[in-house]
């Protein structure tokens, strides 16, 4: 995937279910050139790709807050600017059974290493995200007020995309 405004970056996203080795991955996140995201915290494609868009924008205008594009994606997903909290809430947990792996390459394409995640690879699309995402946990992390009733995933997702765009600004 390439975002039209940032053609120098090649982006790969994979979604896995029934992940067996989350604890192992979690212990090695610092050395692996990927962003590992707990898929239960993602309700739509646009939620994640809006965060990637923001990451590339912050990078282009020299405003990265973390060391790598991959850690910046986790921060970009978060509604607050606390980096530790962003990792804890959106990053892989030792118990994660569903994972999203994001790889961003500047100048040149690479593939996500197939042997990395032991689990079933499924298509990264709305239907596969919606059916499992943890709406209560998402609403809590994004601090959505009870008065906001998201009757469908697209309303929920829209509120998250707004928060992602405006964090810290």
């Amino acid at each position: 995937m390439i975002l039209p405004q940032f053609p120098d970056y090649e982006i790969n996203v994979s979604l896995y279910e029934n992940v067996q080795n989350a604890a192992d991955i979690q212990s090695r996140v610092a050395e692996l050139p990927y962003a590992f995201i707990d898929a239960n915290m993602i309700c739509s494609v646009e939620q994640l790709t809006a965060a990637i868009y923001r990451t590339l924008m912050e990078s282009t205008y020299n405003r990265l807050r973390t060391k790598t594009l991959h850690s910046e994606v986790l921060l970009a997903l978060s509604p607050t600017s606390n980096i530790g909290e962003a990792f804890k809430k959106f990053g892989v947990k030792s118990t994660s059974e569903r994972l999203i792996v994001v790889q961003i390459n500047e100048n040149g394409s690479q593939k996500i290493d197939d042997s990395l995640v032991q689990g079933d690879s499924v298509e990264f699309k709305d239907e596969n995200l919606q059916s499992y995402c943890d709406v209560d946990a998402i609403r809590k992390v994004y601090k959505l007020d009870k008065s906001f009733q998201s009757n469908n995933t697209s309303d929920l997702s829209r509120a998250l995309v707004d928060a992602i765009q405006l964090r810290g600004l």
Binding site: S147, V161, D162, L166
Partner: peptide, 19 residues
């Protein structure tokens, strides 16, 4: 736009990206 969307019943355009 983001605050107004959170209020039930108000119709405003969806915010897609902010640069």
């Amino acid at each position: 736009l983001s605050k107004l969307f959170l209020i039930g019943g108000i119709n405003v355009p969806k915010l897609i990206a902010t640069d």
